[in-house]
Design a protein around this nucleic acid. Sequence first.
DNA 1: ACATAATTTGAGCGGTCGGTCAAACATCAG
DNA 2: CTGATGTTTGACCGACCGCTCAAATTATGT
Lengths: 211, 211
Amino acid sequence: MSDTKQRLLDGAMDTLRKHGIAGVSARNIAGMAGVNQALIFYHFGSVDDLLVAACTAATGDRVAAYRERFATVGSLRELLDVGRALHEEERDLGNVAVLAQMLAGAQHDEKLARVTAEALGMWTAEIESVLHRVLTGSPFAEMADIPGLASAISVSFVGLELYEGVDRPGAQRAMAALEQLGALMEVVEELGPVARRALRSKINKVAARRP
Amino acid sequence: MSDTKQRLLDGAMDTLRKHGIAGVSARNIAGMAGVNQALIFYHFGSVDDLLVAACTAATGDRVAAYRERFATVGSLRELLDVGRALHEEERDLGNVAVLAQMLAGAQHDEKLARVTAEALGMWTAEIESVLHRVLTGSPFAEMADIPGLASAISVSFVGLELYEGVDRPGAQRAMAALEQLGALMEVVEELGPVARRALRSKINKVAARRP
DNA sequence: ACATAATTTGAGCGGTCGGTCAAACATCAG
DNA sequence: CTGATGTTTGACCGACCGCTCAAATTATGT
């Protein structure tokens, strides 16, 4: 990767972080990167393509960071702790704003939608992988639909990140409530097999009543 | 409300829905509304102020619709069903895209942040109100932190709406898993007081272990 | 009918946008 | 050194941006 290309990728993400999509222009990005604005078109063809390339690279880097952090997780409680730490890390890096811009842009830009879907997919796959490792052999495994659980956690974290940028106290209340669900899962893990089967059967019965 | 002002408010929301924030310009909005673009500045002072006014009015209308729909809800299961119906309604109206644009814009625009926070607050307050009504007298009430639960539901729905615009299957898996949590709540409601107190105490104990 | 005020119009201002281009510059093989 | 190739530069283009304004039109009170 040539120095100029990397500077432009970084400049694009910095611009998105600091000024949002409204501040993303060839001249702003080039200024942030410290290079001539015409180089954007020489190296990436268009501002849109640069933005997509920058988002792709940045989300790839972040997923790699998640994977590294998840590698040492051995229990549900550790997973929730690492999750909270990663959440705060994302906020401090300014990536919450980036995620918001990507999700918003994905609604009307096909390329951005593909990149965003890919990022969410990788992120959810990481959660699913660590959940599978943590819960395998655990009594909870027979209770849980791991892929669904991973999606639900991923969705809740997306909501949490965006919520926090707007209503911090509400996000913290929600975080506490969601962690109580984690505690509930741990309680279920402590149930004996008879009680667990009874609980599972009751949940299935209630869920089957839905239209 | 004069006809022109209303047309401009509607035109602003239609533009945001159909073309996203990138398509929001005085000429586009005026074209969508079928009025002269200079009227935006005569009636609202600036494009930004029109956008904020339009978002404020639209979210107010939607919250009123939620309140009306929640009024007939009498049980947790009904609440989940109405929630799912409202979710699909939002999607069909194109309001998912609007929410995404508001959340993204709120990251860098103070006025938009205020409007968005207000909207999320009203929406969460409605959930809290109906939850309180539905769960009061229910055995589950003594289990749940209602405000935290309302925030968690609100956060999850925000995540769900944005997720659905990008990864539909993932969102549906998450929806199913979250509804299983609803089923779990109904199961808890069927527990006797002794089992419930024991469960609550275990959850508190597990939650207390967290740093 | 008339004066006054509110509303609407089309033209246009200065400025920024994405993108282009010819020329300058750097690099390196022969 | 020479020529070929790849990179960088600043000037520039047409389109669109938010916004203003004087003039035209419509509504209102007397």
